Computed example of a mutant assay.
Amino acid sequence: MRGYTGLLAALLALISVSASAVDLNAQLNEFFKNRYGQSGQSADNLTVVVKTPQNMWPACEQPQFSLPGNSRMWGNISVAANCDQNRRYIQVQVQVTGQYLVATRQVVRGAAIAATDMRMEQGRLDTLPARTLMNVDEAVGAIALRDINPGQPVTMTMMRQPWQVKAGQMVTVTASGNGFNISSEGKAMNNATAAQTVRVRMSSGQIVMGKVDANGNILISL
């Protein structure tokens, strides 16, 4: 009888552990699916694999999960699981399948990237290099900083936006403040894309700094 009772207790404990594992996996999957949806990105499939040993999991049934603000969207991630005042960190791997950008043909360094140079491909996003692009529009018109080979995932670090202002170019500088707007001309001293900072030598010899707008004008806020 004692043997039967011990066996029953062991089975009940195993069932309890299995149920707890299912619950935590389901909760983490739901947490990351909600987070992924809120980011505005789409995924065909998302699976969370828990890497932390089960004896280090949170003790409560419904822990509150949180992430640092700069956490990546997929791959290996540390999740804070809070049970009242008790916090544990769970290591997970977020596996995501979706579309990403690859080169259809070789793009040489210095060339402007056209829509026909790129295509979307299906695969595991969490295995891709950092900052791989998910949208063709993010690459079209950009300048390749290195040779990009056919079939290669395209990352943000492989390109830059075209120069909106070039060194030596005459530009319009507009200084604005409380109730006033003053415009003058000067010569740009460095290359810059839209929204970047450029130094400008004014006709008086004074050097000022401002941000480049979409039309190539230099804006200074006073």
Rank of each mutant, 00 (worst) to 15 (best):
A59Q: 04
C60T: 04
C60H: 02
Q62A: 13
Q62R: 09
P63H: 05
Q64L: 08
F65V: 01
F65L: 04
S66I: 03
S66T: 12
S66H: 03
S66Y: 10
P68T: 02
P68G: 04
G69W: 03
G69N: 07
N70M: 07
N70R: 13
N70L: 09
S71G: 11
R72P: 01
M73R: 11
M73I: 14
M73N: 12
G75F: 14
N76Y: 08
N76R: 00
N76I: 05
N76A: 10
S78M: 07
S78I: 12
A80Q: 05
A80I: 08
A81S: 12
N82W: 05
N82V: 13
C83N: 04
C83D: 02
D84Q: 14
D84L: 15
Q85D: 15
Q85V: 13
Q85K: 14
N86C: 11
R87Y: 10
R87M: 12
R87D: 08
Q91D: 15
Q91H: 14
Q91C: 07
V94H: 14
V94W: 13
Q95T: 02
V96E: 10
V96G: 08
T97V: 10
G98T: 12
Q99M: 12
Y100S: 00
L101G: 05
V102T: 15
V102A: 08
V102W: 01
A103G: 11
T104Y: 12
T104N: 11
T104F: 11
T104E: 05
T104S: 14
Q106Y: 00
Q106L: 04
Q106W: 01
V107E: 00
V107L: 07
G110Y: 05
G110H: 05
A112Q: 06
A112W: 02
